[in-house]
Design a protein around this nucleic acid. Structure first.
Lengths: 192, 192
DNA sequence: CCTGTCGCGTTGCAGGTGCAACGTAAACGA
DNA sequence: TCGTTTACGTTGCACCTGCAACGCGACAGG
């Protein structure tokens, strides 16, 4: 091996640059040259690590998915089912800069997925996992009003909808959190 | 006047072509030439009616906003507050082809708005009106669990989140409707 | 009739796009 | 030392982009 370069690390670095461009200027401005400039490298190097632009896009999407999953794994401890669901859903709200960037990226990729079925499949798998986790908690909590599946889809949709509203400036984070909390009470029962 | 052409009608026709392109192939594929081809006209004509691409985008956004508002005005009758809120929120779910197209457009423009503040303002105004309407109904219904404002943002976020999930294929329309119905019961109280 | 205005088409251009091809330097094994 | 492999940089190309400019027919008012 002539040189030692961590391939995955380089790709992640470029993916981060892409995510920054996507979050700040939209997906329409994501180009090889812009990503390269944002990362401070040449366009040729980008091409070296991603043979095609689409490959780079998909990789970037995987990076955020892995990052979100890691954060969930790290924090999903809690005494009650309600607390566990709460920490999970709070991670979806753009309450700090990092999650705001991820939120913008998520919205952008959701639009992107409308035209690329394979990307849509990835997004779908990601949310499916979260829905299953919430449904499991709802089941152990023994909800009365809704069946666990419906409760899970409802809470997940609510959180994502709130996230979009916060990102759009329709709502501030505190209110979003309060609304989420209130709906947790309604669906899973109040904190004991 | 040399010739009689309804300016607004022509612009609407072009906007419809733009919406179709945006919904089917994403915003990245919206260009003067593509829109012109979709509308079956030349690129020069598009340029004649919209001096700039951005002007065309904004006009298209206004077209869907007006269309949604018209649909809401036409259908927002109902005996109880719950029924009125229900018909309003159901209009946001992509249950038929027309609303699916509008939903895709909405997602696309939400991503677009992240980079254009003026577009974001328009989207914001649109949702603000709906939130106010729901809050008003919630107030007259006299909700117990939540204050009317929180109930309105929750229900609106829920509906939009459900819409995104249906569009992404994570969920089918029937389930989305059922979840919405259940949450209406929780927040506004069951049908009397 | 003719002249101005409107509707629309055509052409051209400067810049950006993805991507292939080639070049080169460095590090390692033989 | 040599050849191979990896890591990058450079150049070039065909294509697309938004937009300005110009052209020209049609229709109306004078």
């Amino acid at each position: 091996m002539p040189k030692l370069v961590d391939h995955h690390e380089r790709r992640t670095l470029l993916a981060d640059a892409l995510l920054r461009v996507a979050a700040e200027r939209g997906l329409m401005d994501v180009s090889l040259r812009h990503v390269a400039a944002e990362a401070g490298v040449t366009a040729g190097m980008v091409q070296h690590y991603f043979r095609t632009k689409d490959e780079m896009m998909v990789f970037a999407l995987d990076v955020v998915a892995a990052r979100v999953a890691a954060r969930l794994d790290a924090e999903e401890v809690g005494a009650t089912p309600r607390a566990r669901v709460r920490t999970l859903l709070v991670q979806l709200l753009p309450l700090d800069a990092a999650r705001e960037l991820e939120g913008r990226v998520a919205v952008a990729f959701h639009a992107y997925a409308a035209a690329r079925p394979d990307v849509a499949v990835r997004l779908r798998d990601d949310t499916r996992g979260m829905r299953a986790a919430i449904a499991h908690e709802a089941r152990t909590a023994g909800v009365a009003a809704l069946d666990p599946e419906a409760a899970a889809t409802g809470l997940l949709s609510l959180a994502e909808g709130l996230a979009v509203h916060v990102l759009g400036g329709h709502l501030d984070g505190g209110h979003a959190l309060a609304v989420l909390e209130a709906h947790l009470d309604l669906v899973l029962g109040p904190e004991r």
